[in-house]
Computed example of a mutant assay.
Amino acid sequence: MAKSTSRKTPIRRKTSKKKKSSFSFKSILFFLFLIGILFSAYHYRSALSFYFKSQSNKNNKVDKVAQARIFQILKAHKDLTFGIDVSQFQGEINWDEVDSIENKFPIKFVFIRASAGSNKKDRRFEENWEQAKEHHFICGAYHYYRPNENSIEQADNFINAVSLHKGDLPPVLDIEKLPENQSIDSLKVGLKRWLDRVDAHYSVRPIIYTGEKYYTDFLKEEFKGYTFWIANYNFFVENIKDEWLFWQFTQKARIKGVDENVDVNIYNGTPKMLQYLTISN
């Protein structure tokens, strides 16, 4: 008989189970996201506190997010100087009530629109100018420049509307629009003609108001001898730049005594420094 051979059972090797990482990629992303949320909450803690307190205000016309941002920026610049600018679009203003922003940040100066283009007078300029001065605000007047109209006629329109005296801020040229039927170079010539004529009349160099992009793209290099009042409402821009004399950071402020939204501005200096900027004679 043939010997029977017993088959050996193959030895099964144990497969080692991979240990799951205690921190998966998704866990890391979630952790970083959480850190970002906490950091943002801490960074905007003043604004958030203001926002939730303001929820008791049932005025639906108020943009509470905008008000919270305004509070945050003003608090961060508490050592500087705050002001507003107004025109006929704010309607009739009760200047007896105009005093501060959120009862915390005092208003020290007011820019008032005097004229626009070659023949437009702001219909509330004289009233606003007189009332603001009576309430002891430092006052400045500005002209809204229309690129497609004659620059000298526009300068004369402003000059005919505004008398500046000791203690007033320098005149302001407000340029926001691009020309429709002339080149940028021609626009710059017109702006310089306006500035030169107004400078010669008041014996003080005007301030130029414009948006930050307009300033960067068209004015920064060729108007280096002038000071600038820059408008930038970007939510993530939180600090005034060194090269800005004034920063208009919002057009949505609510001020006692004014029914409509108001622009708020920061002067890049102390109240005492603002006095040095005014006309001296």
Rank of each mutant, 00 (worst) to 15 (best):
residue 222 E to H: 11
residue 111 F to P: 04
residue 58 K to T: 13
residue 67 Q to F: 12
residue 231 A to H: 03
residue 280 S to A: 15
residue 184 I to F: 11
residue 189 V to Q: 09
residue 181 N to P: 02
residue 216 T to P: 00
residue 202 Y to G: 06
residue 35 I to F: 12
residue 243 E to P: 04
residue 261 N to M: 05
residue 19 K to T: 12
residue 277 L to N: 03
residue 43 H to W: 15
residue 56 S to A: 10
residue 278 T to P: 01
residue 190 G to N: 14
residue 65 V to G: 10
residue 281 N to Q: 09
residue 275 Q to C: 07
residue 115 S to C: 07
residue 30 F to P: 04
residue 213 K to W: 12
residue 190 G to H: 05
residue 40 S to K: 11
residue 252 K to S: 11
residue 216 T to G: 01
residue 138 I to E: 02
residue 83 G to P: 00
residue 249 F to H: 09
residue 138 I to M: 08
residue 8 K to N: 14
residue 266 I to C: 00
residue 171 P to Y: 01
residue 31 F to V: 05
residue 200 A to R: 13
residue 122 D to N: 10
residue 137 F to D: 07
residue 211 G to E: 11
residue 181 N to T: 04
residue 55 Q to Y: 10
residue 134 E to G: 04
residue 88 Q to D: 10
residue 188 K to P: 07
residue 231 A to S: 05
residue 37 I to H: 03
residue 14 K to D: 10
residue 186 S to M: 10
residue 176 E to L: 15
residue 13 R to L: 14
residue 241 K to G: 00
residue 153 E to C: 07
residue 81 T to G: 02
residue 39 F to V: 14
residue 112 I to Q: 06
residue 205 R to C: 03
residue 192 K to N: 13
residue 85 D to Q: 10
residue 268 N to M: 08
residue 277 L to A: 05
residue 59 N to C: 01
residue 146 R to E: 15
residue 156 D to V: 02
residue 2 A to R: 14
residue 73 I to S: 07
residue 21 S to W: 08
residue 10 P to F: 05
residue 210 T to D: 11
residue 90 Q to N: 07
residue 19 K to Q: 09
residue 214 Y to A: 10
residue 14 K to F: 02
residue 194 W to V: 00
residue 218 F to C: 01
residue 166 K to W: 11
residue 226 Y to I: 04
residue 49 S to Y: 10
residue 195 L to F: 03
residue 186 S to K: 15
residue 274 L to R: 10
residue 178 L to W: 02
residue 72 Q to W: 09
residue 252 K to M: 07
residue 257 G to Y: 09
residue 248 Q to I: 00
residue 194 W to D: 08
residue 114 A to G: 11
residue 280 S to F: 06
residue 273 M to N: 15
residue 133 K to N: 10
residue 162 V to L: 09
residue 134 E to H: 12
residue 42 Y to M: 01
residue 152 I to T: 13
residue 262 V to N: 00
residue 96 D to W: 03
residue 137 F to P: 07
residue 164 L to E: 01
residue 14 K to Q: 15
residue 7 R to N: 15
residue 224 K to A: 15
residue 102 E to P: 00
residue 105 F to W: 05
residue 271 P to Q: 11
residue 74 L to S: 13
residue 50 F to E: 07
residue 117 G to Q: 05
residue 167 G to K: 13
residue 206 P to L: 10
residue 188 K to N: 09
residue 107 I to A: 02
residue 181 N to K: 14
residue 198 V to S: 05
residue 72 Q to T: 08
residue 169 L to A: 05
residue 234 N to H: 12
residue 136 H to R: 08
residue 154 Q to M: 09
residue 76 A to H: 12
residue 32 L to N: 05
residue 273 M to E: 15
residue 71 F to I: 05
residue 203 S to K: 12
residue 205 R to V: 12
residue 119 N to S: 13
residue 216 T to C: 01
residue 60 N to C: 06
residue 92 E to V: 12
